[in-house]
Simulated assay, not measured.
Amino acid sequence: MTSPVGLHRVLEPVGVLPQAAYRLDPSPAIGPDEVRVRVERLNLDAASFRQLAEKHAGDGAAVRDEVRDIIAARGKMHNPVTGSGGMLIGTVDEVGPESPLGLEPGDPVATLVSLTLTPLAVTDGLARWDGRGEQVPCEGHAILFARSIAAVLPAELAPGLSLAVLDVCGAPALTARVVAERLAAGRGVSVAVIGGAGKSGSLALAAAGRAGATRTVGVVPVPAERDRLVAAGLADAVVLADARDPVALAGAVSGALGGPADVTVVCVDVPGCEHGAVLATADGGTVIFFSMATSFAAAALGAEGLAADVTMLVGNGYVPGHAELALGLLREVPGVRALFEARLAAD
């Protein structure tokens, strides 16, 4: 008997949900409410890829071998250091008669749930991947549960471009929701996005502007990213700061906005940015953490130590309508598309 949340696929330890499991069963035979997807490309989340690349000093072959070994050992892509995974695109192979996902065999899809809870088997040894970019061409299959989420890929967009956008589509949706809620309550809505030139950061800036933010600032660590973000026109101001330096970060944000941000969105893939984000946020403001490199203990204890009256939200990757909103921003905001296409070309 299958479980809508995938309990029947957990091999060890028994009794936990698939995301918390050490090992899943990725066998291809599906239950009545499952879907099997023929995998074509994985997208490793930024924090996981950075950790692997730094561990192996940029040796792509070593990165590839470790990703392959993680999938083989765990039946899913679940980085044991960062605790994160990514997502995938592929083609629906088979749909169980009781699946509620509305998918049909042959549909090109992106999974909108983490690889850390998706049963996955790779059959080509990742032979077509050089280990030097977040997107991983591969062959294999994945299993979706009744409670999984997937989106049919738009025909007019290149699959790699859709994958890059859908990998981070929770960020703009939650940013837009927070901005709209503050506006409705008559509260200030200046927005700082830390990591504003990245995938989730650029979408968050665009979403904040569309939702009515009064002023936006993008924070980036190096001049090259500053120049790209300025050219994209997604923020009212772009500033240079190391997000791991709390005082410098808070000073840069306050200098650009005339004071701390009402909403701070953290979209960087390095640890140690929690205290700066809190310090850069006004009392009564909101910090949204979209980075899998975040230490939530450090965020909570840091806010306590600073006597900071801020609301801290964990971006869990899902907001109703998130895929449609992110793809709409890609289609309608030229600066977003330019940044994504440049990033894919560089990879």
Rank of each mutant, 00 (worst) to 15 (best):
D167N: 04
T311R: 13
G170K: 00
L42V: 11
V239C: 03
L301W: 15
V336F: 03
V109E: 05
E324Y: 06
P4W: 03
G15E: 09
V268T: 15
A53W: 15
R182M: 03
V219G: 10
A346H: 03
A211V: 12
K55C: 10
A127Y: 08
D347V: 02
L126C: 00
A300I: 14
H275T: 14
A346W: 01
A256L: 09
A213I: 00
L330P: 13
S295L: 04
K199P: 05
S27P: 08
A243R: 08
G196M: 05
A308W: 05
A184W: 06
L279Y: 09
T294D: 08
A293I: 04
R36H: 06
G302N: 07
G86I: 02
I288D: 05
D59T: 05
T2I: 13
L52W: 01
P154Y: 03
P100R: 11
R38A: 14
L120M: 11
R38P: 12
A164N: 04
V319N: 06
T116V: 15
P108H: 05
D167H: 03
Q135W: 04
G251I: 02
E94W: 11
V265M: 13
D65K: 04
E66W: 04
I89F: 13
D65F: 02
D33R: 09
P221L: 08
R228I: 03
A237C: 11
I288M: 04
R215P: 02
V81C: 00
A53L: 15
V219N: 07
T311S: 11
K76R: 10
L101W: 10
G315V: 01
T294Q: 08
A142E: 08
A46S: 14
Y22N: 09
S190I: 01
G160E: 14
A61N: 04
V136E: 00
S48D: 06
S190A: 09
D93Y: 11
V333F: 00
G196A: 06
R23L: 13
R343W: 09
A345Y: 01
L174S: 14
E66M: 04
A150R: 09
G131P: 06
E156Y: 08
V92W: 07
L52Y: 01
Q51F: 05
S3Y: 12
T264I: 14
M312V: 04
V268M: 15
V268Q: 13
C273Y: 12
V67D: 00
L313P: 01
V230A: 13
G195R: 12
E181T: 07
L174N: 14
G218I: 01
A297C: 07
L183P: 02
V165F: 07
G272V: 14
K76W: 05
A142C: 05
V189E: 05
R74C: 15
A176I: 08
A127W: 11
R50G: 02
L339F: 00
A127V: 15
L101T: 11
V217Y: 01
V263D: 10
M1W: 13
V287D: 07
L103T: 02
S27N: 10
R343S: 06
V5H: 11
G106K: 06
V10I: 02
V230W: 13
R331A: 13
V219Y: 02
R210C: 04
V95E: 12
